[in-house]
Design a protein around this nucleic acid. Structure first.
Lengths: 110, 110
DNA sequence: TCCTATGCTACTAATTATGTAGCAATGATA
DNA sequence: TATCATTGCTACATAATTAGTAGCATAGGA
């Protein structure tokens, strides 16, 4: 199910790590989950469901499985937590916010 | 079809720009396309298809539509080109490569 | 006129996501 | 001890998205 580094993914037979990560980031809710875990910290299953405005449990569970298999999150005391790697990855996403604001301002009429 | 900034997307009714962009980035091939356009420059429809290891024309066309509607790519002389905003966005993705290599090294056994 | 390359569409099949209901396990409460 | 609430999670049916194959219309060059 979850594709690990070294394994082929859709669009890349090489298994190059960046291709593997782009494959999971290209699944629905993955980016959002990393975003929420980074911004609001650890959360339980149902908390995360609420933060993502009622993502279905099926989808949430699948994404959590993916992230766990890839060593990006783990089960902690207070629910699901970013690992060291997950934290670093989600930190890379932080500049997206500022970029998006400038982009939206220039792209859409007021 | 394509959701513009200010419009509700799955998981966010606010239309916040960062949510809108995470919605499209969460569709298959979006990240990969930005990646390829940034790394290898502009390309024709069929070139991009090849770079993405034979993505179906249906999917490619849908993603190109999305990116065009969002002012991230445009049709230039040599095919599809990143706009100013698209270039800035894809530049944000560049650190993913280095991160992924470190992550894979630590995550998977040799 | 023929050939090539362009972007792109129709159509069907496969994969993935959603929505609803609810389960088993754990721990607190009464 | 018998509830009760919360935990992570699953079953199942439906809907939406993606993929694969074939091919079209247009434009340009030989």
């Amino acid at each position: 199910m979850t594709k690990l580094p070294g394994q082929a993914v859709r669009g890349s037979t090489t298994g190059r790590p960046v291709m593997v990560i782009m494959d999971v980031l290209g699944k629905r809710w993955t980016l959002r989950l990393l975003w929420e875990l980074n911004r609001q910290g650890p959360g339980t299953f149902r908390e995360l469901q609420a933060r993502c405005e009622d993502v279905s449990p099926t989808s949430l569970n699948n994404r959590l499985k993916d992230l766990r298999n890839l060593n990006l999150i783990e089960n902690g005391e207070r629910g699901f937590v970013l690992t060291e790697h997950g934290l670093a990855l989600s930190a890379l996403l932080a500049p997206l916010d500022q970029w998006a604001n400038g982009w939206a301002k220039a792209t859409t009429p007021p």
